[in-house]
């Protein structure tokens, strides 16, 4: 129905303008990181990799990248292992109590980070966990659980509960049923959850301001200081590194899904 069902030309032009606005920041970062100047700008005369060289030879940026990676991996493992089991338990029991558990698991994406940051800062002072790997990994892990619970719950919604009953009926233990029947079927959901949890930790920039200070300086933390102190083009390189890591994860997720559906 070409005369009425489609959006009119005005609506389409407006919509695409908004979409370009959405893409604008991502698209300017890459050329800026390749600038031949010593300050933040688009390249004037030539593309230059000098700031990439600066980034990858800088002790501070490299150690931040490394710390971010370690923390993100460890907290992802924590979030995925606990979150997946929790989602499965809630799915199987499906009682009023597990509904409450599910809502509790979603708290970290509803409550603003700043509110939680105060509480955990206070607790970590008391437990002497400020500025430690344990402290940061626990915090990023716990706040990563909701992403895993959501994706695994979604995957379980398409899982026939009779398969679990059939496996148990044939004499499989709970552990065997989990390992051989349930987990393989919901693997795409777990992978998606893991990727979300990883990116959550990798990008996290509020809690880290409170719970780490000197020993731990993650990539977002160093960028934060950089933006507030000296805006130099190496920052753009760091931004690109962060974007690439996220996009890489997204690609892994898409690839895993496609492989599943084949």
């Amino acid at each position: 129905m070409d005369r009425s069902a489609q959006a009119g030309p005005v609506a389409n032009v407006l919509a695409w303008s908004v979409l370009l606005f959405l893409l604008l920041p991502i698209t300017v970062i890459f050329p800026i990181s390749l600038t031949d100047q010593r300050f933040l700008s688009l390249p004037y005369e030539a593309l230059s990799l000098q700031h990439y060289v600066a980034f990858f030879t800088s002790e501070r940026w490299l150690s931040s990248t490394w710390q971010s990676l370690v923390i993100a991996l460890a907290s992802t493992i924590l979030a995925v292992s606990t979150g997946t089991l929790c989602a499965i338990g809630c799915w199987k029991l499906s009682t009023r109590a597990t509904e409450i558990v599910r809502v509790l698991m979603l708290l970290p994406i509803i409550v603003p980070s700043i509110v939680y940051a105060l509480g955990i800062y206070r607790l970590w002072i008391r437990l002497d966990l400020l500025d430690t790997y344990t402290g940061v990994i626990l915090v990023h892990g716990v706040t990563g659980i909701p992403y895993v619970v959501i994706t695994v719950t979604t995957a379980l919604a398409n899982f026939d509960p009779r398969l679990e009953q059939a496996a148990r009926g044939m004499g499989a233990s709970l552990r065997q049923t989990l390992a051989w029947v349930i987990l393989p079927r919901i693997m795409p959901g777990i992978v998606s959850g893991a990727i979300f949890a990883f990116i959550h930790s990798w990008d996290e920039a509020v809690l880290i301001l409170f719970i780490a200070s000197r020993a731990l300086f993650t990539l977002p933390r160093r960028m934060w200081d950089g933006i507030n102190e000296n805006l130099d083009p190496v920052m753009a390189v760091a931004a690109c590194v962060m974007i690439l890591a996220s996009v890489l994860m997204l690609a892994v997720d898409l690839w895993a899904r496609r492989k599943r559906s084949e």
């Binding site: 991502i26 970062i29 990008d203 920039a205 933006i227 931004a239 974007i243």
Partner: peptide, 8 residues
């Protein structure tokens, strides 16, 4: 990352 976008 929201930080990267703010920086951009």
């Amino acid at each position: 990352s929201v930080l990267v976008r703010a920086f951009a």
